[in-house]
Design a protein around this nucleic acid. Structure first.
Length: 311
DNA sequence: CGTCCACGTCTAC
DNA sequence: TAGACCTGGACGG
């Protein structure tokens, strides 16, 4: 499951789970989190989720009742609020009973029910940040999923950028150009397309100029921030294949792995077209091939599946 | 127990 | 180019 799609699933999850649920009161932050508080409170609001690249955005929308001006207990009018989350290694949303709040739930939205249930943002390593009143990060590139043509154009019209001096493998982690690509996705993409991971990015991508692949244009203003079909109850459950089964290269026994310049592990298949690793790329990892599981990954997918099944 | 590793980015030398 | 930021699971002794 590609990174972008995974985040898309996270946003689908929120929209599906929260459809029809009325939330109420303040947004609660864990004591231990260093992120900003979310200064939002409202007697009745709903939550929807959308995604763009590596970000997920929740929208808290006050529910208006006929003839009643919507006001918070403090007297200030409720306005819709966007919270943008930068997603990473160990984070996901869950919707549980308030008494069964997951460990490491750092941001909590309570439903107006008794007993209360809560949507929570779970971030085990606390690496993630969120921005109240935030919008999509301005310096990250177009979404690889929902802004495909913009994404493509942004890459191909900037091939002189120094970012493309890197190997294709390393360049693909640059979020200015590949917003949504993560470590396992670069491995899976390069493997499936049989692209040598240590070729210079410009060499690989320069070859794409002549033929333009025609895909339906997804306009940024339409594609990136629509509430998803899940709101209408059509979550693609059959697509919730386990992450592990989906992987063909990343962490797969028999594949090679090296450490890149940023200390990230590159997974790849040693192929006939493979040139020697570019200079500067370091030590081969030993012993790791024995490990079959990508436990973090499968755990996260299990969490997401579990969350859906519980509903 | 300890060590290594993890879907990532930021900051400082 | 290192750390820093964090928790926790797998694995080795």
């Amino acid at each position: 499951m590609p990174k972008g799609q995974e985040l898309h699933l996270a946003s689908l999850f929120v929209s599906l789970i929260c459809a029809g649920v009325v939330f109420s009161g303040p947004v609660e932050k864990s004591e231990v989190s260093k992120n900003s508080k979310v200064p939002f409170t409202c007697d009745a609001y709903c939550i929807t989720g959308t995604s763009r690249g590596k970000e997920v955005r929740l929208t808290l929308t006050p529910i208006k009742e006929e003839g009643e001006p919507q006001a918070s207990p403090g007297g200030k009018a409720c306005q819709p609020v966007h919270i943008v989350f930068r997603f990473g290694m160990s984070d996901f949303f869950r919707f549980t009973a308030g008494s069964e709040m997951p460990k490491h739930a750092h941001l909590r939205f309570y439903a107006n029910e008794t007993p209360r249930r809560a949507l929570s943002f779970v971030d085990v390593r606390r690496f993630r940040s969120w921005e109240p009143n935030g919008d999509w990060q301005t310096d990250s590139g177009p979404c690889i999923m929902f802004e495909y043509q913009s994404f493509r154009a942004n890459v191909l019209s900037n091939l002189s950028d120094r970012a493309f001096d890197e190997t294709i493998s390393e360049a693909m982690l640059n979020q200015n150009f590949f917003n949504g690509i993560g470590n396992y996705l670069r491995a899976e993409i390069l493997y499936r397309l049989k692209i040598a991971p240590f070729m210079k990015a410009r060499t690989v991508l320069g070859g794409l100029f002549p033929k333009k692949r025609e895909l339906p244009e997804v306009k940024p203003e339409q594609g990136q921030c629509q509430p998803h079909q899940a709101v209408r109850g059509t979550i693609p459950r059959n697509q919730m294949i386990t992450f592990q089964a989906w992987l063909q290269c990343y962490y797969v026994p028999g594949m090679k792995s090296l450490r890149d310049h940023n200390g990230r592990t590159i997974w790849f298949q040693q192929g006939v077209k493979e040139e020697p690793p570019a200079k500067g790329i370091k030590k081969e990892k030993g012993g790791v091939q024995k490990r079959v599981k990508s436990h973090d990954e499968s755990k996260k997918m299990r969490e997401q599946e579990k969350g859906l099944k519980e509903q």
